[in-house]
Design a binder for these strands. Structure first.
Lengths: 197, 197
DNA sequence: CCTACCGATCGGTAGG
DNA sequence: CCTACCGATCGGTAGG
């Protein structure tokens, strides 16, 4: 009995967080109201507060769950015994797939984090900065081994990460090409832009 | 006398639009209040309405002035008698420079257009779709002449345009590399990603 | 989970 | 350009 109740609470909260992701993506964090969210969930606005503490709590749950997935993947890839180009490609494919299959959350984490309040805000910005430095370090290692062109590594990271966020437009469109084709095209262009001919 | 008064009104409005761009970029359109804007301009909130009609008017002035600049440049480049790769490079360099030197406006036009109201909203989305199709057409022409790799042209456009929006992070950062270096690095990576080896 | 409601803030107007 | 102010909407709470 108690078990069932617990499960139900958890799944209720998960529904709220998930609907919040969709809403924050569609309207932006500020423009999406708790009344909108309540309607999407199918309850009155006041009832949401039995499951969550505040609107901002929803935002930082979304932002940090996404950030943690990327940092975790980075740990994994750094530890692998493969070429630097192969590492870069693995990271790119992970980003692309995250964007395709966890679109709403990743989009919100990417574009709405500035509305976080300050213990979380600086924490998030920090994690982000660290992630990019680690990514740039992989590129720099690739430049040293001559796998990669002599370019400014932080600029390359910026290009990669933002290029992938363009999948947003693909996701919204009628999707003339498949997810697999999209992934191959992106990897071809981005890895092709880095590698020495 | 009348002349001076007219000039003063024009420049007053320009100050308001410009401060609005900065504010909308910093906080997002919804989170930036007219009271914030009034403070930045140095007047009371109510006084703003002697120069502008509404908050949304500020947004669509920003969005459309940026969109028009890009469409105008596209006209110009299409008409030139140069290779397709050279056209792509010209467009990229224009985008990069717009992002570097008109950062606030371009950023707002890129990220806040979804808060436009509906005659303007669909109009803006239309212009954007047309622009991207024309950009893709240049890439497709380049594929036909074998200047460019066989890739999906709309995907390539997505990557280019979003990659360049990454300059935002460069702009906010301590700027370890110069604008010129940034431009060369971006062109190297992006054009290198498209061209046949 | 709902009804009832609060204080704050919003975009914008009236009138001078 | 300002003072004064309005109706709407916001995130969130009390109490059941």
């Amino acid at each position: 009995m108690a078990r069932i109740k617990t499960d139900k609470n958890i799944s209720r909260k998960e529904v709220i967080v998930s609907k919040a992701a969709t809403l924050f993506r569609e309207k932006g964090f500020k423009a999406a109201s708790m009344r909108d969210l309540a309607e999407a969930v199918g309850v009155e606005a006041a009832s949401l507060y039995n499951h969550i503490k505040s609107k901002t709590e929803l935002l930082h749950e979304l932002c940090f769950s996404v950030a943690n997935r990327f940092l975790h993947k980075m740990d994994e890839v750094e530890a692998e015994n493969i070429s630097n180009i192969a590492k870069i490609e693995k990271l790119l494919r992970f980003h692309i797939n995250e964007m395709i299959y966890h679109y709403e959350e990743v989009y919100v984490s990417d574009r709405e984090w500035k509305h976080l309040a300050d213990p979380y805000l600086s924490n998030f910005q920090n994690q982000r900065r660290i992630y990019r430095k680690r990514f740039a370090a992989v590129i720099e290692a690739g430049i040293r081994t001559k796998e990669v062109k002599k370019i400014d590594a932080p600029t390359a990271v910026l290009i990669m990460l933002h290029a992938i966020s363009g999948i947003e437009s693909w996701h919204r469109s009628t999707q003339k090409i498949s997810a697999a084709e999209l992934e191959e095209n992106m990897v071809t262009i981005l890895v092709g832009g880095l590698t020495n001919p």
